[in-house]
Every structure is written in structure tokens, then in C-alpha cells.
Design a protein around this nucleic acid. Structure first.
Length: 260
DNA sequence: GATGACCTGTGA
DNA sequence: TCACAGGTCATC
């Protein structure tokens, strides 16, 4: 997705612009987009007449609370989803995805009594809408991750460190780009087994994750890393041509010299 | 834990 | 026509 930074941008847009407005209509034309048994009539039964009271987030999962003890609306952005409120999209345009505003890509939305609307626009249809999502399937949010939690995770897993960082049940929010950038900054090979990292390396990685979230958040999104995502591009740190591999099932760029 | 599936748009 | 895409899920 949209990784944690983009989802946070979406959360802020909902918080700033969509709270306290009465919902009068649900538009859910894509049954496939509704998950965990949810069907459009159920949304139409519970959302109109209510308003959103808070926009929360855990990892990449958006959680929107509703009035009158209503359900929690869960929104996933998938690989290409964006939240649009009254025509304003959250965050920077996505790379690797179309940002055109095509009506057919509006997979879910609500119209407000004042005439505005909130849309989830998603060309690839890999996002999702659900009610009362199970937040416990997700690990601690990446922004709240403690150093001790990361130490605990790494000592218990033989998975490549990159796969561990992207496992949403262990840490919620890190995706392909943020993970590559954090590992590049930490000087850690994405394919190293997690439990092979020593205490010092885990400490360095922890600081890199925090720094990556802070810095890329300030710059505008997950795509604003310092490491180029291109084969043979020179590593900005030491000039070595970067390599591309598949690690944890995802395209992975890294510096073969300083990431060990 | 690695792999492929899901879906669709874009650019080479 | 093909490879590839910031995610997640089921399956071997």
C-alpha cells in the first residue's frame, strides 16, 4: 500500500475532514471488495444516519469509529488505494500506480448530508472494507514498536530479517519500500536470518526504523527514501552498484558492500 | 517460510 | 506482449 506513512496521511484526512458529518448514503458497488462476509445491505443498514467520530490506525489498517455505538469501519488500501474526501486525496501521489481519478475505481464510499463524500479509490481492487475488524491479528504499530520488542522478535525467528519486519502479525505497518530503506540505512543484509543479528545490529536497525519513519514521513511518503530502487544505481553511501533480489517474496534492493 | 494467487493499470 | 507494481491470503 500505501505503507504506514500513506495510511497515516489518509487517517489525518479523514480526521480533519470527515468527522461529525452525517452519512446519508453508502455506495458499495463492488461486492468482491467487501471482506469477511460483509455485504452491501449491511453497510446500508448501519452507516446512514450515523457520523464518524474518530479515525484511528493500526499498521496499515484504518479504523473509523461511528456514532450511536455503531460498528467500526475498517478500511484497507491494498496496493493502490487512496482515500479521497470531498475530492481531496490524502498524501503524495503513489508511484507504481495510477493516480487518475476514474469513477470506476471508486470501490466504496459514503455521501454526507452536506453534499460531500468520502471515497476509497483503488484501481487494482486489492484493498478491502470490513466491519469491526479484528485488530489483534496485527502486531504493535511500527510507530509504537519498542527496542525490546524488536529484540524479542529477532531472537525468535530464523526468517530473513526483511520478512520479519514486513510480517504484519509481528510489526504492523512496514512494507516493501520502508523495510528496504531501513535495512539500507542500518547496513543490514535483508536476507540475513533475523536471529543471526547481534544486539548491536538490532539496536542499529531499531534506530534506523525510527529514523526512516520520521524522515520519510516528513518528506512526504515511503517513496522518498535515499536508496535508489534501481539495479546498478550507485549506492549513495559508498558508490557500489545496488543489486536486486527477491527476499520474503518481494522485490528487494540492497547494497552488496555495506549491507552485511 | 517460500510460493503462487488474487486484480488491474502502466510502460518498456 | 511482458514484466512489474508501496499488500495479503491460502497452500505446499
Amino acid at each position: 500500500m500505501p505503507e504506514i506513512l500513506e495510511v497515516e496521511a489518509a487517517r489525518r484526512v479523514i480526521e480533519a475532514r470527515a468527522l461529525g458529518r452525517k452519512v446519508v448514503e453508502v455506495v458499495a458497488p463492488d461486492a468482491w471488495y467487501l471482506k469477511r462476509g460483509l455485504v452491501a445491505p449491511e453497510l446500508e443498514a448501519v452507516l446512514p444516519g450515523r457520523a464518524f467520530t474518530a479515525a484511528r490506525r493500526r499498521g496499515k489498517l484504518l479504523l473509523v469509529d461511528t456514532t450511536k455505538r455503531g460498528p467500526v469501519l475498517g478500511l484497507h488500501l491494498g496496493m493502490s488505494g487512496r482515500v479521497v474526501v470531498d475530492g481531496e486525496a490524502a498524501g503524495d501521489p503513489l508511484i507504481y500506480a495510477s493516480n487518475r481519478d476514474v469513477e470506476a475505481w471508486h470501490r466504496f464510499g459514503v455521501r454526507f448530508a452536506d453534499g460531500g463524500a468520502l471515497w476509497l479509490r483503488d484501481p487494482r481492487r486489492l484493498g478491502a472494507v470490513e466491519l469491526d475488524p479484528d485488530e489483534e491479528r496485527l502486531g504493535p504499530d511500527a510507530f509504537d514498536l519498542t527496542r525490546q520488542e524488536l529484540v524479542g522478535l529477532t531472537t525468535r525467528s530464523r526468517a530473513p530479517i526483511k520478512a520479519l519486519l514486513m510480517d504484519q502479525s509481528r510489526i504492523a505497518g512496514l512494507g516493501n519500500l520502508l523495510t528496504d530503506e531501513a535495512l539500507w540505512r542500518a547496513g543490514v543484509d535483508p536476507a540475513r536470518p533475523a536471529l543471526a543479528l547481534n544486539a548491536e545490529e538490532v539496536g542499529t536497525l531499531y534506530r534506523s526504523i525510527r529514523q526512516t519513519l520520521r524522515t520519510l514521513g516528513r518528506r512526504g511518503g515511503s517513496h522518498m527514501g535515499d536508496m535508489p530502487r534501481a539495479i546498478d544505481a550507485p549506492c549513495p553511501r559508498d558508490g557500489t552498484p545496488l543489486v536486486r533480489r527477491t527476499v520474503g517474496g518481494r522485490t528487494t534492493f540492497s547494497c552488496p558492500l555495506h549491507q552485511r
